[in-house]
Amino acid sequence: VLVAAPLGKHPLQHRWALWFFKNDKSKTWQANLRLVTKFSTVEDFWALYSHIQLASKLTSGCDYSLFKDGIEPMWEDNRNKCGGRWLITLAKQQRHTELDHFWLETLLCLIGESFGEYSSEVCGAVINIRAKGDKIAVWTCEAEDRDGVTHIGRVYKERLGLSSKVVIGYQAHADTATKSGSLTKNKFVV
């Protein structure tokens, strides 16, 4: 089915939704989560990206999430609950050096379908701006699919330009949800 894209615009494989979360303690978690907008062309992505605040400029406690249309940025969503995430944890000073670059590269990986046949397993990505250290994660739908998860992890690590000495871990959401203490075990590493 040829996607009917407006003349001159480049259609994406998927329609994507950008979500914004602002930590207002007087409201429920869900009430703090807002859908910003959806897009399905390269041009509309750039129009959005140039219009919104850079992640490094967000106040502590805020998140951006980019998910395929129809998938909500939470573990409970049907497409997330059996999945997990490749997690990038950043040191505090990296907010001003690499955070925005890492996040943009993550967005380009998603909208460009950069993970080959396994791109279909990608659900979305989340960036958390936190005083104790920012985090970026790519969420996939099936934590048990070793081949798909490890392929996505390898390509993602390469796209971020991380050295081979840096190890990143994949955590199943089910483990993160029931973790005891602050450390969640990694199901895979690359």
């Binding site: 259609p11 994406l12 494989q13 390269v42 750039w46 380009l108 909208i111 460009g112 379908e113 950069s114």
Partner: peptide
């Protein structure tokens, strides 16, 4: 089926084209 793929170079070029 077919998959619409864009590499980062192309995506970045689109950002700068009018």
């Amino acid at each position: 089926g077919t998959r619409i793929i864009y590499d980062r170079k192309f995506l970045l070029e689109c950002k700068n084209s009018p």
